[in-house]
Simulated scan of single mutants.
Amino acid sequence: MKAAIVASLVGSAAAFAPTSSGRAGTSLAVEKSKALPFLPAPANCEGYVGNVGFDPLGVSNYFPVDYLREAELKHGRMCQLAWLGYVAVDLGMRVPGYPEAMSSASSAAAHGPAVEYGALGNILVWIAFAEMTSWIGVSQMLQGSGRAPGDFGFGKKFLDGKTDAQIESMKLKEITHCRAAMLAFSGVVTQSVLYDKGFPYF
């Protein structure tokens, strides 16, 4: 008799107990970012080479990731060249034919003389031309042409005969160097201005 009462109490209590479904369990298991484990992984960045889930502001939710990757590659490539040019000037490399004010200026102090001589205006024109022509490819990419971000057709011969894994590895190396160059150029400019010394700027 006592066993029957206990069984009925346990059965009635179990009727009001919360049940768990597989769907509720998976909704709570959100994949976390590798770079920032306290944030969810940005879903739109999945499948891109070099993705470590770093998007704390959620920019990939508002802009096409192809466009963002294009910008990242462009700025990274420019910073690789810029770091090399900045340091080369401070090590004494000069283009022949420029006036003394420009030839003797350090990289940090070259802006003023370059504006006076007109060199900076020429650079602006060429950069504007490059931006306008490159936008044709970017625009076609955003309209679904299948063009890969940053692909301007240069260096394709280096991919001949490579496996998909090797191509992915080369893309990963490029994006890694691009990101390092953006930090490196920011650092070299900041340090050269703060310490007002030539290379290595300390």
Rank of each mutant, 00 (worst) to 15 (best):
K157T: 00
A7C: 07
P40W: 09
A29R: 08
M170P: 00
L73Q: 02
S12P: 15
V49T: 05
A4D: 09
N122H: 01
K173F: 14
G121D: 13
M93V: 04
F185D: 08
S169H: 03
T190A: 13
L36D: 06
Q166H: 00
D66K: 10
A15V: 11
T176F: 01
G161D: 05
A35K: 13
S60Q: 12
F129H: 07
L194H: 08
A148F: 11
P96K: 02
F185T: 06
G22W: 06
A7M: 07
Q191L: 05
G92I: 03
L124K: 03
C79W: 11
V87P: 07
A105H: 01
K157V: 04
A180E: 00
G112F: 14
G153M: 07
A110Q: 11
A148Q: 09
L159V: 02
L9G: 10
Y67W: 14
V188R: 09
C45H: 11
K34F: 07
D151S: 05
F202W: 03
A101T: 08
M78Q: 12
S12C: 03
K32N: 15
S20K: 04
E100M: 09
D151V: 02
E174A: 06
N51E: 02
E31P: 15
V65S: 14
L39N: 00
K197P: 15
S139E: 05
R69C: 01
L73E: 00
N51M: 01
M132S: 11
S192H: 00
T190S: 09
A14N: 09
L84R: 06
D196R: 10
G22M: 13
A165M: 12
A110R: 04
S134E: 03
G11F: 08
L81W: 04
V189M: 02
D160N: 09
G121N: 01
R69I: 03
H75Y: 11
G85K: 05
G50H: 00
A24Y: 01
A181F: 01
S33K: 10
L159D: 04
E70I: 08
D90A: 10
S60Y: 04
D66G: 10
V193F: 01
F54V: 11
A109R: 12
V188K: 12
G112P: 14
W83Y: 09
A14H: 00
A15R: 01
L57P: 09
L84F: 08
G144C: 14
L28Y: 01
D160A: 10
G146N: 10
F185Q: 00
F199I: 01
A15Y: 15
S139F: 01
G187Y: 12
S104D: 05
S134L: 12
G92Q: 04
D196L: 04
Y201A: 11
F63S: 03
S20M: 15
F129G: 09
A7L: 10
A14F: 09
G153L: 08
A105R: 06
N61V: 11
L194Y: 09
A114N: 07
R147S: 00
V189F: 01
V30T: 02
T190E: 03
V10M: 13
V125Q: 03
V87W: 06
L57E: 06
E72R: 06
A88R: 05
A35R: 13
P149F: 15
L28G: 14
Y195A: 10
D55G: 15
D160W: 15
G121L: 05
I175Y: 03
L39H: 07
Y48T: 12
P96A: 08
S103W: 11
E31G: 12
